[in-house]
Simulated assay, not measured.
Amino acid sequence: MNEFPRTLKLLTIWLLLGTLVFLGVQALLHERQRPRLTINGGQVTLQRGPDGHFHWPGTVDGREVVFLVDTGATTTALPGALAAQLGLRREGTLQSQTAGGTVMAWQARAEVGLAGGLRFSNLTVTVIDRMNGPPLLGMDVLKRLRLVQDGATLQASLP
């Protein structure tokens, strides 16, 4: 019995083809979710993501993150899990109004960087322990920029 039966060979081929198709679809979905931006001098142009939002790659205390640009957020907000991983120190508690209602949160300070060379040192951020999803880039940062939205693009530059 040196050869696989014909049925087993066909099954193996179909499983391999199915795996390749699955991996190809996963790679395509990952590529579609990746933030699209161009940097031209001091201007960053973000393309709206497939979810309808603008996403801006950056860092928090050196850790790479992708911020969700949120003009409805007063401050930049981080999930509690990310703050714990970064070892951020609690500087006070507060109540925060979110789309889901009022939640307890706390404040910390962090170094925030955005693709395009923008840096915000010692920025006070809001940490929401039960926050799911990406960090939010709030108006505390956005108000320091000149923003122009034109359809599916958002241009940001220093004023």
Rank of each mutant, 00 (worst) to 15 (best):
V103Q: 15
G116W: 09
R119N: 12
S96D: 10
T102V: 14
A156R: 05
A27Q: 14
L147C: 07
L88Q: 08
A83Y: 02
T124V: 10
V141M: 04
R6Q: 11
V103M: 09
A83N: 04
G49N: 13
L114Y: 06
A77K: 01
Q47H: 13
D150Q: 15
M1D: 14
G42L: 05
R119D: 09
Q97M: 10
M104P: 11
G138I: 07
R109F: 00
L46T: 03
R89W: 00
F67L: 02
G116F: 11
L16R: 02
L28R: 10
L145N: 05
W56R: 05
D140W: 06
Q26S: 06
Q95T: 13
V148Q: 14
L94H: 09
T59L: 08
N2D: 15
R34D: 01
N132L: 12
G62H: 09
E3A: 13
T75V: 07
P57A: 09
V66Y: 05
S96C: 12
G116I: 07
W14E: 13
L147W: 03
G18Q: 07
E3R: 14
A152G: 11
T12R: 11
Q149C: 10
A115V: 11
A27N: 12
S121C: 02
G18T: 08
T98I: 05
R34T: 12
R119P: 07
T75F: 10
G49Y: 02
R146N: 14
G58S: 04
V60Y: 01
